[in-house]
């Protein structure tokens, strides 16, 4: 799903649920989602992500 399509779906649902104030927050989130997708890299070759624990 594209970010634009997701955003429209989310705004429509928020309005249906009576939370229209979410719109500017969802628009801000959509910008972040685009940044994340643009920056996303393929999984590392070794298939062993570092453990945080």
């Amino acid at each position: 799903m594209t970010v634009d399509a997701w955003l429209q779906m989310a705004i429509n649902d928020a309005e249906r649920r009576g939370v229209p104030e979410l719109r500017p927050l969802l628009e801000m989130l959509a910008r972040g989602t685009q940044v994340l997708r643009d920056a996303a890299t393929p999984a590392p070759d070794d298939n062993h992500p570092p453990s945080r624990r």
Binding site: W6, V19, E21, L22, L26, L29, R37
Partner: peptide, 20 residues
């Protein structure tokens, strides 16, 4: 409102965030 925002994040973007 911030909590409600979290309900709209797609699973695929959550997984992308874990990889990042």
């Amino acid at each position: 409102l911030r909590l409600e925002m979290g309900r709209y994040i797609l699973a695929e973007d959550y997984v992308r965030a874990k990889a990042m």
